[in-house]
Lab assay of single mutants.
Amino acid sequence: GGTTSGLGELPSGWEQRFTPEGRAYFVDHNTRTTTWVDPRRQQ
Rank of each mutant, 00 (worst) to 15 (best):
F26M: 02
G2L: 13
G1T: 11
V37S: 10
F18C: 13
S12L: 07
P39Q: 01
R17N: 09
G2F: 09
W14C: 04
R17I: 12
F18Y: 13
T4G: 11
L7F: 12
L7A: 12
Q42S: 13
R17E: 12
T34R: 03
F18H: 14
P39H: 00
H29S: 06
G22M: 08
V27D: 02
W14A: 02
G13D: 05
Q16T: 09
V27G: 00
N30E: 08
L10S: 02
T31F: 05
T4R: 10
R17F: 08
E21D: 15
A24Q: 10
H29G: 07
H29Y: 08
E15D: 11
R32C: 08
L7Y: 12
H29Q: 07
H29E: 06
Q16I: 10
D38E: 06
Q16Y: 08
F26T: 01
G13I: 00
D38R: 06
S12G: 09
S12P: 13
W14M: 01
N30H: 03
Y25K: 02
T19Q: 07
L10T: 03
T33H: 03
G2H: 11
T33D: 04
V37I: 15
G2R: 10
R40N: 05
T31Q: 08
G22H: 07
T19A: 08
G1A: 12
P39G: 00
G1E: 15
G2W: 08
P11G: 02
S12A: 10
A24L: 11
V27I: 07
G2V: 11
H29K: 08
N30K: 08
G6Y: 05
P39E: 01
R17C: 14
E9K: 10
G2Q: 08
F18K: 11
R32H: 09
D28L: 00
L7M: 14
G22P: 01
P20W: 05
G22C: 05
D28A: 01
T4S: 13
R40V: 04
R32K: 13
R41W: 10
V37K: 10
R23A: 15
S5K: 14
D28Q: 02
S12I: 08
R41E: 15
T34E: 04
F26W: 12
T33L: 08
T33S: 13
Q43V: 13
P39W: 00
T19S: 13
P11T: 00
P39A: 01
P11I: 01
P39V: 01
F18E: 14
R17P: 00
T35F: 00
G6C: 14
L10K: 03
G2I: 12
V37M: 13
W36S: 06
D38W: 01
Q43T: 13
Y25D: 00
T19W: 00
R17S: 11
T3I: 06
R32V: 04
S12N: 12
S12H: 10
T19I: 04
P11C: 01
P11R: 00
W14K: 01
G1W: 05
P39Y: 00
P11Y: 02
G8P: 06
Q42A: 14
S5L: 12
Q43R: 15
T19P: 03
Q16P: 06
S12D: 15
S5Y: 13
R23H: 15
E9G: 10
T34A: 06
G2C: 12
E9P: 09
G8I: 10
Q42F: 11
Q16H: 09
E21R: 06
Q16G: 06
P39R: 00
G8N: 12
T34W: 02
G22V: 00
D28R: 00
W36Y: 15
T3K: 14
T33A: 07
Q42P: 14
E15G: 04
L10C: 04
A24P: 09
T4V: 11
F26R: 00
G13V: 00
R32N: 12
T4E: 14
E9V: 10
R40L: 05
G6K: 14
G22A: 05
D38S: 04
S5M: 14
Y25M: 05
Q43E: 15
Y25V: 03
F18N: 15
G1F: 04
F26L: 02
T3V: 12
E21A: 08
Y25F: 08
T33E: 06
E21M: 09
V27K: 03
Y25T: 02
R32F: 10
T33N: 06
G22K: 15
E9Y: 07
F18S: 10
R17L: 14
R40K: 04
T34L: 03
G6T: 14
T35K: 02
R41Q: 14
F18I: 11
R32Y: 06
T31L: 06
P20K: 14
H29M: 09
V37C: 12
G6M: 13
R40Y: 02
G2T: 14
E21G: 11
N30S: 09
R32M: 10
T34V: 06
V27M: 15
T19V: 05
Q42T: 13
G1S: 14
P20R: 11
H29D: 05
Q16D: 03
F26G: 01
D38N: 06
L7I: 12
T3N: 14
R41H: 15
R40W: 03
T4L: 10
Q16C: 09
D28P: 00
R17H: 07
P11E: 02
R32D: 04
P20M: 11
E9F: 08
L7V: 12
Q42H: 15
E15A: 05
G8T: 09
G2M: 15
E9L: 04
T35G: 03
D38M: 05
A24G: 11
V37G: 08
G2D: 13
T35R: 01
R17W: 09
D28C: 06
T35A: 02
Y25Q: 02
T33W: 03
S12V: 08
G8R: 08
G8F: 09
T35H: 04
T34Y: 00
P11Q: 02
G6H: 11
G13A: 04
T19H: 04
E9Q: 05
